[in-house]
């Protein structure tokens, strides 16, 4: 049996995986897509994909929702939550077995490095590579914040882990976002608090989202400045005046350093967030190894889904040590309309 591309994803709400798979169908690249939901149909451990049949793994998503129900004799919010958590842990116990059973070098991104990724460590690594990062500190007192505000006109607070989504009793969702602390908002800060990550606030000209794909950087500039509502974080979408998103090319030197950073972390793909200040300086913010690349690919017309399919294919060919060119269905760009008008 020939070795396969394995894609770990979920069965719905996953247009990125869908599109990569559709490209692979079209380019006649064989693959196996395993959705988290499929684990509920396995009979035994040996139904899981194994190391010998697998040439390369792309781990995109785990699962959308468990196709499992439970009920409590006495409904109680706390136990509900504990039970949900328990099921998640149970599922992860099975799912992450793959991280160990399939050789680490076959994964596009080292799964354990991805799982244990730490924001502070990434910032530290970046600084070591001379990539500029905003001043970052973890603080617990208002006094310290006041001292920092002597040096920086404003700070932002953001989670050390990931932003979460909260739901109220009416099922309205609230998304956690980055917020600003300055002299004006200082009064709302308690004397002492849970250890919190603060960063100097960069007055940005625009933000950059880079999708890193096996050594190449595909970047997009995000202009949200005109938009008061999104000054802090472009994820707080304003549907009426969407941010302007356009292709961008980072300086070669910065691309080179980002490449080194991704290699140290053993990631062959992922998205990188940067910011450009009013003077044009770059500030590195963070890495999302599982990055959603549709949001960079489509606005910039990068066809990353197709490039991703090619990368997976090359990885299998490399594994088989066959060096033949895949069928070429490329359609090169004609001259741009701009040049035509000249």
């Amino acid at each position: 049996m020939s070795k396969k591309i394995l894609i770990l994803s979920q069965s719905y709400l996953e247009s990125t995986t869908d599109q990569v798979c559709q490209w692979m169908d079209y380019l006649k690249i064989p693959y196996r897509r395993l959705n988290g939901e499929d684990f509920f149909r396995f009979q035994q451990l040996s139904d899981l994909p194994d190391n010998t049949e697998t040439a390369v793994v792309w781990y995109r998503r785990k699962i959308a929702h468990f196709p499992a129900e439970f009920s409590l004799k006495q409904p109680d919010i706390n136990s509900q939550y504990t039970l949900k958590r328990f099921l998640v842990d149970e599922f992860n116990g099975l799912h992450s077995f793959l991280f160990h059973s399939i050789d680490a070098q076959k994964w596009l991104n080292d799964p354990l490095s991805e799982k244990n990724l730490n924001k502070l460590q990434v910032l530290q690594l970046a600084r070591r590579l001379n990539i500029h990062t905003p001043f970052t500190e973890v603080v617990t007192t208002k006094a310290k914040i006041m001292a920092l505000l002597e040096q920086y006109p404003a700070l932002i607070v953001k989670p050390l882990s990931e932003c979460i989504l909260l739901e109220d009793t009416e099922r309205r969702a609230y998304k956690m976002l980055t917020s600003t602390i300055d002299q004006k908002s200082l009064s709302a800060v308690p004397e002492t608090f849970f250890p919190s990550l603060v960063q100097e606030r960069i007055v940005k000209k625009f933000e950059i989202r880079t999708f890193y794909l096996d050594g190449a950087c595909y970047s997009m500039a995000i202009f949200s400045q005109n938009n008061r509502k999104t000054t802090d974080d472009f994820r707080n979408y304003d549907n009426h005046r969407p941010n302007r998103t356009v292709p961008y090319k980072l300086p070669a030197e910065l691309e080179h350093k980002l490449d080194q950073l991704m290699k140290i972390l053993r990631f062959r793909t992922g998205s990188i967030d940067l910011m450009v200040d009013m003077q044009g300086n770059y500030h590195f913010l963070e890495i999302n190894p599982e990055g959603q690349f549709g949001m960079v690919s489509h606005p910039c017309n990068y066809y990353l889904e197709k490039k991703f399919a090619r990368l997976l294919h090359q990885s299998v060919l490399h594994e088989k040590e066959i060096h033949q060119q895949p069928e070429n269905k490329e359609n090169a760009a004609p001259a741009t309309v701009f040049s035509e008008a000249e």
């Binding site: 599109q19 169908d25 079209y26 500039a221 356009v246 292709p247 961008y248 300086p251 066809y303 269905k329």
Partner: peptide, 26 residues
């Protein structure tokens, strides 16, 4: 109309968009 913005230079990093077209179906 937010079709562009003023800066102290033309930013060369704001590259042209590649105008390719392709689909995963014949």
């Amino acid at each position: 109309r937010e079709l562009g913005f003023i800066d102290d230079r033309i930013l060369p990093e704001l590259t042209a968009m590649e105008l390719t077209w392709d689909r995963f179906a014949d």
